[in-house]
């Protein structure tokens, strides 16, 4: 076999070194890329959004704690006749009653009307879908056909087609006309925007013959939760902490 020239041998040596260096550089890049993946699979944008949400939540918590400190200071300095403690409790009661749906309220929002079709009736799944979407659009208070939805409100369908009825808070809310009015308090624009996101769902109902419409309302009125309602349940609970 013919021997290679010195130049050829030198070139082959250089070639091997160059390939080695290239492989090493590529390996380093892969390792760095793996490190990037280890840091998090989430994109930087998602992480930035998460940081902003956390900062916002912390700012709200800090503000809440400042209010609590102010309340404590006012209580500590209470003199006979000031009624600081009583006023604080009455104010908290007022807010909690509104929040829990224990009193009738009003505010800006919208009415969504859903009407039975000839061959298709509205059932609890339809109402649950609307309610969940409205809550996603920051709905603060909701009532359906006069029944206020609270934390433990159920929405059920009883009976079978065509005699089915919808039950909320243990009460039948179905009307003989098959009309369901969802009254919702929240930012009307945000509610309308959320409703538009439900476009394909609304279309599927319209195809079945179920009518759906939205009306923005300046002042929506919601009733209080009935005191006889099963949603007033707390018998089995005992306060913790």
């Amino acid at each position: 076999m013919k021997r290679l020239s010195r130049l050829s041998r030198l070139v082959i040596l250089l070639l091997c070194i160059a390939i080695g260096v290239l492989v090493a550089l590529q390996f380093k890049n892969v390792t760095e890329a793996s490190r990037a993946n280890v840091v998090d699979t989430a994109s930087a944008d998602e992480l930035r959004d998460f940081v902003i949400d956390l900062q916002l939540a912390n700012a709200e918590l800090a503000e809440q704690n400042n209010r609590l400190r102010d309340n404590l200071r006012a209580l500590q300095g209470e003199q006979e006749g000031d009624n600081v403690a009583l006023n604080q409790v009455l104010e908290e009661n007022r807010r909690l009653e509104i929040f829990a749906g224990l009193v009738a309220v009003e505010g800006p929002g919208a009415h969504i009307t859903i009407v039975d079709g000839k061959n298709a009736k509205v059932d609890h799944n339809h109402l649950l879908t609307f309610v969940n979407f409205l809550r996603a659009g920051n709905a603060q208070g909701i009532a359906i056909n006069g029944e206020r939805l609270v934390a433990m409100s159920e929405i059920l369908t009883t009976g079978s087609f065509p005699n089915q009825q919808i039950v909320i808070n243990g009460n039948i809310i179905s009307s003989s006309e098959g009309i369901y009015t969802i009254r919702v308090i929240g930012d009307p624009e945000q509610i309308a925007s959320t409703y538009s996101l439900l476009g394909s769902y609304v279309s599927s109902l319209l195809v079945k013959g179920i009518g759906v419409s939205l009306e923005k309302v300046e002042t929506v009125q919601l009733p209080a939760l009935g005191k006889e309602s099963p949603a007033y349940r707390f018998g089995l609970m005992t306060a913790g902490e």
Binding site: R94, V105, E106, G107, G186, Q221
Partner: peptide, 9 residues
């Protein structure tokens, strides 16, 4: 926030 938006009636 909720109770600032909704007013008791």
């Amino acid at each position: 926030t909720v109770t600032d938006l909704m007013v008791e009636r």
